[in-house]
C-alpha cells in the first residue's frame, strides 16, 4: 500500500492531519488517545541531499516543538538518489546527519517507530527506517538491498540460482518476512489489520537498546552474528 493518504485514513481512525509535499509526508495523528508525529517519504522517493536535509529539519522541529512525542516513520523510499550532483554535495553527510537527528530525538525520549508500507531499499532505509527502535512492515511492502537482476549482474551468480536461493534464504531474499526472521522487522502486519496492530504496538513499552541480533538468532534467520557477539564478550 504505497498511497500515503489512503494509508493514513486506514491507519488512524481516531484522526490525523498530514501534509504531503516534495516527496515527504509530515503531520500528526491520534493513536489510542495519544498524539504522535508522522514523518516519512512518499511514492518511493529517492533520498538525495535536499530531501535528507528537509527530513532532518522536520525531525529537529518535532524535537523542539513537541518534546518527547512518539515519531512514526512511514517508509516508502526507492533508496538513495543516484546522481553525480548528490555525491558531489556529499550525500553520505546528509544521510548521516538525518540519522544523527533521529539519534538526538531518541536520546531526548522520543520513541521511534517505523512502518514500511511501500518500498524500503538499501542505504536510504538506514536513515529513514532502520534507525528506529522498532520497525514494522505491511505484508504488501517491499524491502530489499537491490533487485535480483542487478544483483546477479554484479555478483555473476546466475539469476535462476539467486531466485531459487531467495525463496528459502532470509539472508538473500527480499521481503518483510525475511527481514522479520533476521530480527530487523519486529512484526509483519496484514494490510487490513494495520490500525489495530499499530495501536497494540504503541501500547507496549518501547524496547530498550538494539535487540535485532538477539531477535534474529531467536527466530533462526541469523544465528552467526549472535555467536560472534558472544565470543567477543558482548550480550547479543
Amino acid at each position: 500500500m504505497a498511497d500515503v493518504e489512503q494509508l493514513c485514513r486506514d491507519l488512524f481512525p481516531e484522526g490525523h492531519s498530514i501534509a504531503v509535499r516534495d516527496g515527504r509526508v509530515t503531520g500528526r495523528a491520534t493513536v489510542a488517545g495519544e498524539t504522535i508525529a508522522i514523518l516519512g517519504t512518499v511514492d518511493g522517493a529517492l533520498i538525495g541531499a535536499d530531501l535528507a536535509f528537509a527530513l532532518a529539519g522536520e525531525v529537529l522541529d518535532i524535537v523542539e516543538r513537541a518534546p518527547g512525542i512518539t515519531i512514526l516513520l512511514l517508509v516508502d523510499t526507492g533508496g538513495q538518489r543516484l546522481s553525480r550532483r548528490d555525491e558531489l554535495l556529499g550525500n553520505a553527510g546528509f544521510l548521516a546527519h538525518l540519522a544523527e537527528c533521529f539519534e538526538v530525538a531518541r536520546g531526548r525520549g522520543h520513541r521511534l517507530v517505523a512502518l514500511v508500507h511501500g518500498d524500503a531499499v538499501s542505504g536510504a532505509f538506514l536513515s529513514v527506517g532502520l534507525i528506529a527502535d522498532e520497525v514494522y512492515a505491511l505484508e504488501s511492502a517491499t524491502i530489499r538491498v537491490m533487485a535480483l537482476p542487478a544483483m546477479s549482474r554484479i555478483t555473476t551468480i546466475p539469476i535462476e540460482r539467486l531466485e531459487s536461493l531467495s525463496r528459502t534464504s532470509p539472508i538473500l531474499g527480499p521481503g518483510p518476512a525475511h527481514y522479520a526472521r533476521l530480527g530487523a522487522v519486529e512484526a509483519v502486519w496484514r494490510d487490513d489489520e494495520a490500525a489495530q496492530a499499530l495501536r497494540a504496538a504503541l501500547s507496549r513499552p518501547p524496547p530498550r537498546g538494539d535487540r535485532r541480533i538477539a531477535l534474529g538468532s531467536e527466530r533462526g534467520g541469523r544465528t552467526a552474528a549472535a555467536e560472534v557477539l558472544r565470543r567477543l564478550g558482548v550480550e547479543p
Binding site: 532502520l130 538491498v145 537491490m146 544483483m151 555478483t155 539472508i171 533476521l182 552474528a225
Partner: peptide, 25 residues
C-alpha cells in the same frame, strides 16, 4: 553491503551505526 549476504549486510550496517552512536554517547 556484501551482496551475497545482502539483507544481513544491510541490517548489520544499521547495527554498526547504532553501536557507533552508543559509543559516542
Amino acid at each position: 553491503v556484501r551482496l551475497h549476504e545482502a539483507n544481513a549486510g544491510l541490517i548489520a550496517i544499521s547495527e554498526i551505526q547504532r553501536a557507533l552512536f552508543d559509543a559516542r554517547r
